[in-house]
Write a protein that binds this DNA or RNA. Structure first.
Length: 700
DNA sequence: GTCGGAACTG
DNA sequence: CAGTTCCGAC
């Protein structure tokens, strides 16, 4: 474990990531991208667009510049930045949207969606596809990025605007801190800061676009997180609440959006580190914590659960990845995939920047101003080839001193974590309970079986999970790791285990169900994505060939200990592809407006939201009725586990064989093969490894 | 424009 | 490790 601060505190470094802090890693590009994406100010430069998770860099040079400024790499340009982005392909954080210039798509699975369980999905939502990652609104309570504009959500569609058209106001941003001043090492401002401190400021600016109204919901970034607005009732709603899944019309109102529509980032919580983040946000936000009580603080009464306390997790980047995967997965499992959200009323869709209205307004207004500013800043030459101008970042000096973690109160003590209280669930905790979830079923199997329900129910009842659920879904998922037994059986969470635990192939998934409404059955699963179901829904993803997935390989190991059977035969599958895909259509029952096609995509099984009817008869929904609140303890876990694993393995095997074989040779493979040779411009192939040193003479 | 290898950096 | 820098290929 690497604990960041040594404080022992467990938040992931990235969570706070004081850029300024010495050891800390700097902001990662994807964080940064997300950061820009969520800010309206940058919509001219980069914005969500198209499919969920898809964004367009409208002004590559500007983005590069901003990035360079943030990283103090004045020489940064789009070429370089894009290289960095391409590295994400293999990591599966991003992938390129083919055919669209400067358009990439986030793999939200990798990002944190953990909190989704809390999402309030009750009402009907916009039906439009949004590129922005859906964020649970209800969750908004829990998480949401600070500033955003609600209005944006409104328009759904997607065309992009031609890239390059807009400009941003760098100066302004800098002032705000989006860009850091390289001069002093410390300063980098994260958005979070803004959120906290700067919120007011931004809002003001934003007001323009937002029309002001929106924010009301927002209230402000981070604060909103804590916002008490949601009662657990809300939570219930999310799950369709007892009673009325579809909608509590009364409470929510039609569209209701209790949520503020902010442009949501995929993350429930901002991943960004920030000073404030550390203090305020980080904890709640951190993915690690995501499920933590914090988020629900409002909802959760039990103090013990506080995430803060519990969080001992330390994440490495790897952990983070896994974590993210888990989240993502959960999203899928929950049926929360971004797309899935669309239908859900309360969910806020990230801003689509579809600007019809807002954008226009914004752009227009801002555009002019910014342009001017930019011009000033950039000076004519900026975009051209090499620029080295350091951006005039003079001011950004907000350094915050967020002590990285120091703030966190209880570094260790975590009552919760330990035993999870498996047995005891605080009554009010969250409405959800975790269920162990079987490994993703193959489609075939999925369909075939309806047993699932049974199992689930049993599992769910296994309360251990239940207790956790509210506390930290994530944590749970993380900790459980490969072993189901632990989750269900012992219920112990080993914080430390986080790393591997998630993805091991054999990992069980945890589902979160709303306790209150079991029948609605919208179960949510939190699972690890690592192996998502292979269905290939992805149109796009042609290739992540196994090789890349190697990264993912890790999963394989973990599990072994316990459960036996889990290893997957197919080493290579890369299931994440799904991530990029558009999620399958929402379950029929759930979305009325959606075409209810049937998709059996596993992902959607059991959407949390509306309970209307069981989507797929089979498994998804039925959850365990009985188990629910009563929380019967169960002990069946193990067997189930095995079962699941077995199934899972089988599925994977099957799918793998099919799909994988197909893919195998695709792009990457080819690359790999070819990769053995380096081709030089001469046309000669040189064996790799043989030295062909690039002569780099250039000075640093 | 995009891709990805390779060397290199902090 | 997460880029950064270069660069050839397509």
């Amino acid at each position: 474990m690497k604990t960041p601060g040594d404080t022992g505190f467990a938040f992931p470094e990235w969570a706070y990531k004081p850029e300024s802090s010495p050891g800390s890693r700097q902001i990662q590009l994807w964080h940064f991208i997300l950061e820009l994406l969520r800010k309206e100010e940058y919509h001219d430069v980069i914005a969500w667009q198209g499919d969920y998770g898809e964004f367009v860099i409208k002004d590559p040079d500007e983005v590069a510049r901003l990035w360079g400024a943030r990283k103090c790499k004045p020489q940064m340009n789009y070429d370089k930045l894009s290289r960095a982005l391409r590295y994400y392909y293999n990591k599966r954080i991003l992938h390129k949207t083919k055919g669209k210039r400067f358009t990439y798509k986030f793999n939200f699975n990798k990002l944190v969606l953990v909190n989704y369980p809390f999402i309030d999905m009750g009402s009907a939502g916009s039906s439009v596809p949004q590129s922005a990652p859906p964020v649970p609104t209800g969750a908004g309570t829990h998480f949401r990025f600070p500033p955003s504009t609600p209005s944006e959500v409104l328009s759904p569609n997607e065309d992009l605007r031609s890239p390059g058209g807009m400009f941003s106001s760098v100066a302004r941003r800098m002032a705000r801190g989006s860009v850091s001043d390289c001069s002093d090492g410390t300063s980098v401002n994260s958005e979070i800061e803004e959120g906290n401190a700067g919120a007011g400021e931004e809002r003001g600016e934003r007001g323009v676009s937002g029309g002001g109204g929106g924010p009301g919901g927002g209230g402000g970034g981070y604060r909103s997180i804590i916002h008490p607005r949601l009662s657990h009732e809300t939570l219930f709603r999310m799950y369709g609440g007892p009673g009325n899944p579809a909608g509590h019309p009364g409470s929510r109102g039609p569209a209701a959006h209790r949520i503020h529509t902010e442009p949501l980032s995929p993350f429930p919580v901002s991943p960004l580190p920030g000073p404030g983040g550390a203090g305020l946000l980080a904890p709640p936000l951190s993915p690690a914590l995501s499920m933590t009580p914090t988020s629900h603080l409002p909802y959760t009464p039990s103090p013990t659960l506080s995430p803060m306390l519990g969080s001992h997790f330390s994440f490495s980047s790897e952990d983070m990845k896994r974590y993210l995967q888990a989240h993502t997965q959960s999203v899928y499992n929950y049926g929360l995939s971004p797309r899935a959200f669309l239908p859900y009323p309360n969910i806020v869709i990230p801003q689509p920047h579809r600007p019809t209205a807002d954008k226009v307004g914004l752009s227009a207004e801002r555009g002019a101003g910014e342009r001017a500013e930019r011009a000033a800043t950039a000076g004519g030459g900026e975009r051209g080839g090499e620029r080295h101008h350091h951006p005039p970042l003079a001011h950004s000096a907000h350094h915050h001193s967020h002590p990285p973690h120091s703030a966190h109160p209880h570094p260790h003590s975590h009552p919760m974590l330990h035993p999870l209280h498996l047995g005891e669930e605080p009554p009010h905790m969250s409405p959800f309970k975790f269920k162990l979830q079987p490994p993703p079923l193959g489609r075939k199997q999925r369909e075939g079986q309806s047993q699932t329900k049974a199992r689930q129910s049993s599992l769910s009842s296994g309360s251990g999970s239940g207790s956790m659920s509210s506390t930290s879904g994530l944590g749970s998922s993380l900790s459980f790791g490969s072993d189901l037994s632990s989750a269900s059986g012992s219920g112990l969470i080993s914080a430390s285990s986080s790393t591997q635990s998630l993805n091991s192939a054999g990992l069980p998934k945890i589902k979160v169900e709303s306790i209150s409404d079991i029948e609605s059955e919208e179960e949510v699963e939190v699972t690890d994505i690592s192996d998502e179901d292979p269905d290939e829904r992805d149109e796009e993803f042609e290739l992540f060939s196994p090789c890349h997935s190697r990264a993912a390989d890790h999963h394989h190991h973990l599990a072994n200990g316990t459960a036996g059977p889990h290893h997957q035969p197919h080493p290579d599958e890369d299931l994440d592809e799904d991530v990029f895909k558009a999620p399958a259509p929402p379950p029929p029952g759930l979305m009325p407006f959606f075409t209810s096609q049937h998709t059996h995509s596993s992902t959607y099984r059991g959407l949390p939201t509306l309970k209307s009817e069981p989507t797929e008869p089979g498994e998804s929904n039925t959850t365990a009725p009985q188990a629910s609140s009563a929380g019967v303890l169960q002990t069946k876990c193990i067997p189930l586990k095995l079962r699941f694993k077995r199934r899972w393995s089988e599925d994977q095997r099957m799918e793998a064989s099919q799909e994988e074989s197909e893919k195998k040779m695709s792009g990457k493979e080819r690359a790999k093969v070819m990769g053995r040779w380096r081709w030089r411009r001469t046309g000669q192939a040189v064996e790799k490894g043989t030295a062909l040193p690039r002569q780099r003479t250039r000075a640093l």
